[in-house]
């Protein structure tokens, strides 16, 4: 049953991917600016311009350009960066590991710490702790990453000297960026976990379990957690794409390479092939995240796969 559900979800990704690819392809043409202007020598003639436009295939019909582009994408051929003058695949391959490492660790941090804090705040009913948790969640959801990054640098790097201010050399350089990205995630996951657990605790079956004499711990871990995990999994899945793409400001402050930095640089130079490849990678991450979330939810809750299949 779950395989059939997964197959159906994969099929649904085809029209979604097509729509996204059209949007990504078109969006860069709607931007002001032109990569050819970055390549042209100042004072070049219109003929020089036309030659360069033809060289990069930008003189062809947009529909033709789209199908050539998408065809190349299917073959893993990302093309040549116009301004950065390197194969786009090389640029992505160079930057993706940094993004995956940072994003993966931030994801792990926000899910584990967020779920732990959410659970504690749901089961330990102490007014002070409850107030603290609410404050923490509010702060985590609203504090800007850029500002938090600078605060962390000032405290942990400048005052305590524990971690480097910036760079991408060794595990120490990962700690502050992971904390910066993860902080918002911790608050979000904690909030969702807390609400889900509190809702689950009000269900009739919990009263029955208590009446049957099960310990609170057993009820929590064996019966409540699977219930509460459903919305948490949805939120976590959606954050996969966000973490990869949303690390731009963090990469900027900490002077780290990554997909976000590459995208921003390419946007500034209107380097279409790089922008398109980066956007496509991020869109794929979001789609995959959603798919993983849906499949995980379906495997945890038979009602979902029955309703949707």
């Amino acid at each position: 049953m779950i395989l059939r559900y997964t197959f159906q979800r994969l099929l649904m990704l085809i029209p979604v991917s097509f729509s996204i690819s059209v949007v990504i392809f078109m969006i860069v043409y709607l931007l002001p600016g032109d990569p050819i202007d970055n390549l042209l020598r100042v004072g070049s003639s219109p003929e020089d311009r036309a030659e360069l436009v033809a060289q990069y295939g930008l003189d062809r019909n947009l529909v033709v350009q789209y199908f050539v582009w998408i065809g190349n994408m299917f073959q893993g051929e990302f093309g040549q960066a116009i301004v950065l003058r390197r194969p786009v695949a090389d640029l992505v391959a160079q930057n993706l590991p940094y993004s995956l490492t940072l994003g993966g660790l931030a994801f792990l941090f926000s899910s584990t710490v967020g779920m732990a804090l959410g659970t504690i705040s749901a089961i330990v009913r102490h007014p002070l702790l409850d107030r603290f948790m609410r404050g923490f969640i509010l702060l985590g959801s609203t504090v800007p990453g850029f500002w938090l990054a600078l605060l962390l640098i000032l405290f942990f790097s400048v005052n305590l000297g524990w971690f480097p201010v910036s760079g991408a050399g060794g595990w120490k350089s990962l700690v502050l960026p992971v904390l910066t990205i993860g902080f918002g995630g911790v608050a979000l996951v904690a909030r969702v976990t807390r609400v889900a657990l509190l809702d689950a605790q009000r269900e009739d079956f919990v009263t029955l379990l208590h009446a049957k004499g099960l310990s609170s711990r057993t009820i929590l871990f064996r019966h409540l957690m699977p219930h509460a995990l459903l919305p948490v999994v949805t939120i976590l899945a959606l954050r996969i794409g966000w973490i990869l793409g949303g690390a731009v400001t963090v990469e900027f402050v900490f002077g780290r390479p990554g997909l976000g930095s590459l995208l921003i640089r390419a946007l500034g130079q209107r380097d279409y092939p790089v922008v398109q490849a980066c956007l496509l990678m991020l869109a794929l991450a979001v789609m995959l995240g959603t798919l993983i979330g849906d499949v995980a939810q379906a495997s945890m809750d038979p009602r979902i796969r029955e309703k949707k299949s």
């Binding site: 000032l154 790097s157 400048v158 480097p164 201010v165 910036s166 900490f254 002077g255």
Partner: peptide, 10 residues
């Protein structure tokens, strides 16, 4: 960040 790197010896 560059300024703080210099201050901290980075």
């Amino acid at each position: 960040t560059a300024f703080l790197e210099l201050r901290t010896g980075g």
